[in-house]
Design a protein around this nucleic acid. Structure first.
Length: 584
DNA sequence: GCCGTTTTCGGCCCGACTGTTTTCAGTCG
């Protein structure tokens, strides 16, 4: 039950209708419904009960009836009928590159292919090659597609794909003598994982650029090679394969192409609709009135011509950005970050000393850094007993005296114990400038337990922030079953910041939770949780995640200058002294 | 199925590449 389940059902309806050869606009409409429901912040059935669901764009009369049935009976007739008329394993075949609804339908009708195993058998027996429109190359492409999927080539984390794409862009620039190669697609939008990499460059000699691209040493296989478009596979540091597409466009069209290939697809459709209303046409070559180019050299000119201000790539998800452009002015900028408030040193499991971390932070232009090493319970991470934390505070004081241009704050990452108590006593926490409280154990506890643990920790006056609040590790483990809305309300009440952990394995809070927190007036702290000086560079992933959640400079505490940051931290501590008004 | 400043019907985003097609359909992004 719930939005995720409902979205899954509508997606499956779309898949099944597509295989049955239904009108593609009707199919699209169901996909749109699925996406809209998956993005909802509130439970669809609660919205329905409150009469608010019908006002949401993309949800019409028919869908409303289906959702009503779902909320009442837990099922949808259309979905059940479709499942009964089409083999269950068929929609999964659509995931295979090179296979679309038409071919899947053909295989089902002519060869009774109902699942992946049937398809493999049909390839092996040569039956597949006997179908009309199915030559040797098509069969080989499908076979390779199955292999690709089975190698586990799923989505690639942002922090793996971004440096890889930058490396490719630089290599292509050098190999083809180009001034500009841009990363587009979901990678430019800063999504936490990406399916493939899209690169874009401007040149009047497409074939030559595509040739240079396909010949890059990183390329392990060429999938397609045209005059303006090439598609290759490269190997990632995780050992997986990643598809990289390159498009070459004329310089006059560069902005239009960048917008087009940055997406999202849904955002682009909204832009095209705006163009159509003015009887214009928008494609990857520009914005046109008849044959006359109105805009296209840069993205800004296109947004301006459509009556919009520039929408940053991170927000191009059709989650209201077209209508909410007035809110864009205060959006957090990477340059706003003044420090990193959660990094580790050799006092626990970090690779670099306090001094080395501070110097690296200074090189990044920061004004401050908070050393937050693990507390005693994190034995596996060389967690510190209280005495060692006090020694560390002394050392930080000494190092601070020897350094100009950066201030080191004494912090700790204090474990939240199983009952919500903290791993250091209050009198020790009081000696710290900044306290991140995190859950590292019992992550599979039930919703009530993990939520209560977090809430209890927030009530402590010395807890400045909650670290990685949901505990997820992307592609590795699910988030805790925690009531994030309750955590957000408590954070607002107790003057506690919530962390956006910038490590690409975490990115937690995630974008939609950032938006909830911002709306509730909760302050965020974007920290790298760096375990080495090099990892301070992960800050950009956290900033982009926060931007995807509409975070403004004013809602992020580590954009404050040091004195203002100290004053902000003091509010919670002194509030308690003045009568415990933060106590529950 | 959804939607409306060309409105309650008739549209719905648009182009590149591939393969098997002899003029285009299917797939993809």
């Amino acid at each position: 039950m719930g939005n995720a389940d409902l979205a899954r059902i509508f997606n499956q309806v779309a898949d099944l209708l597509e295989i049955k050869g239904e009108d593609r606009f009707r199919v699209n409409s169901y996909r749109n419904v699925a996406r809209t429901i998956a993005d909802l912040e509130e439970d669809a059935c609660e919205l329905l009960a409150a009469g608010k669901l019908k006002d949401i764009r993309g949800i019409g009369k028919g869908t409303l009836e289906k959702i009503t049935q779902y909320c009442r009976e837990g099922r949808i007739d259309l979905h059940a009928e479709l499942l009964a008329s089409v083999p269950e394993g068929l929609p999964a075949l659509l995931k295979i590159p090179g296979l679309g609804p038409k071919k899947v339908q053909l295989m089902w009708e002519r060869l009774n292919v109902c699942c992946l195993e049937d398809l493999k058998a049909a390839i092996a027996s040569g039956a597949l090659a006997g179908l009309p429109g199915m030559g040797a190359k098509s069969v080989e492409r499908i076979r390779a597609g199955i292999e690709f999927l089975e190698r586990g080539a799923g989505r690639t984390p942002l922090g793996v794909a971004w440096p890889l794409a930058q490396g490719l862009a630089e290599a292509l620039k050098a190999a083809a003598g180009l001034d500009r190669v841009e990363i587009a697609g979901s990678l430019r939008r800063g999504r936490e994982t990406i399916g493939d990499v899209d690169l874009l460059c401007a040149s009047d000699d497409g074939p030559r650029v595509i040739e240079a691209f396909c010949d890059l040493p990183q390329v392990t296989r060429v999938l397609a090679r045209g005059d303006t478009k090439g598609s290759v596979l490269v190997r990632t540091e995780l050992g997986t394969e990643l598809q990289v597409d390159l498009r070459v466009v004329p310089p006059a069209s560069f902005g239009a192409a960048l917008a087009y290939f940055t997406g999202s697809k849904e955002h682009n459709i909204r832009l095209r609709e705006l163009a159509l209303r003015r009887k214009w046409r928008l494609n990857e070559y520009g914005l046109f009135e008849g044959d006359r180019l109105i805009a296209g050299q840069d993205e800004e000119s296109i947004y301006r011509a459509l009556g919009l201000c520039f929408i940053p790539p991170e927000l191009r998800e059709d989650r209201g950005e077209i209508e909410r452009t007035a809110e864009l002015a205060g959006l957090l900028d990477p340059a706003d970050i003044r420090g990193d408030l959660h990094v580790h040193s050799t006092y626990s499991d970090g690779a670099n000393t306090i001094r080395e971390m501070a110097l690296a932070a200074r090189r990044r232009g920061y004004a401050y850094i908070a050393i937050c090493d693990h507390s005693r319970s994190q034995v596996i991470a060389n967690g510190m007993p209280a005495e060692r934390l006090l020694e560390q505070i002394e050392e930080i004081r000494k190092v601070n005296r020897t350094l100009d241009g950066i201030t080191i704050l004494s912090g700790c990452e204090c474990d939240i114990l199983s009952d919500g108590r903290l791993d250091f006593p209050d009198e020790v926490l009081a000696r710290c400038d900044f306290v991140v409280a995190s859950i590292h154990s019992g992550l599979r506890g039930d919703r009530a337990t993990v939520t209560a643990r977090t809430l209890r920790a927030m009530q402590n006056p010395y807890v400045t922030a909650i670290g990685h609040p949901t505990g997820r590790k992307i592609g590795e483990r699910e988030a805790m079953d925690i009531d994030i809305e309750e955590v957000i309300r408590a954070a607002a009440r107790t003057h506690t910041a919530l962390e956006v952990n910038a490590s690409w394995q975490r990115l937690d809070l995630k974008d939609t939770h950032v938006e909830l927190a911002r709306a509730a007036g909760v302050r965020l702290t974007i920290n790298t949780d760096a375990h080495s000086a090099e990892q301070l560079g992960m800050m950009e992933y956290g900033v982009r995640t926060a931007r995807r959640g509409w975070a403004e400079k004013g809602s992020v505490v580590n954009t404050l200058e040091l004195d203002d940051l100290k004053a902000w931290i003091a509010v919670k501590r002194t509030g308690r002294q003045q009568g415990g008004r933060h106590e529950e």
